[in-house]
Amino acid sequence: MSDNKAPSIQQDQMRIDLQDEASMKEWEKKLDATAEQLKEAVAAVGDLASDVEAHLKGSRSSVNSERVHNAL
């Protein structure tokens, strides 16, 4: 018998939860983005991390760390 919970747990980890502050901080670091950028991206493409990452890469210049620094 297979464990049906494993895929859903893994799938949940790949979603960005805008209500979880600790999760948001982690995604900000992983995606080199501000909280506002993450919120805008989730609103535009949904909460799948891969979709958000692709959206962010397509909507900003190659040097985003300066924008993140300035936003803080």
Rank of each mutant, 00 (worst) to 15 (best):
E40V: 03
L38R: 11
L56N: 08
N70W: 05
L38G: 10
Q10S: 08
A71Y: 04
I16D: 03
E28H: 04
K5R: 14
M14W: 13
D20S: 15
H69V: 04
D3Q: 13
A35K: 14
A44Q: 02
R60E: 03
M1Y: 09
K39D: 00
S59D: 06
R15E: 09
Q37A: 12
A6C: 11
M24T: 02
D51R: 14
K25Q: 07
E40M: 02
T34D: 10
L38A: 09
A6I: 14
R67Q: 09
A41L: 01
N70E: 02
E36V: 14
R15H: 08
V68I: 15
S59K: 06
H69I: 04
Q10D: 07
S61D: 08
D17H: 14
R67V: 04
V42E: 00
D20W: 14
P7L: 09
V63T: 12
A54D: 12
N70Y: 07
A41W: 01
K29D: 01
S2D: 09
E28Q: 15
D20E: 14
Q10N: 07
M24A: 05
L48G: 09
A33K: 08
K30A: 01
L38H: 11
S2Y: 10
A35G: 13
S65F: 06
A33D: 13
L72P: 10
R60F: 08
T34S: 15
L38S: 11
P7S: 11
A44D: 01
N70A: 14
Q10C: 06
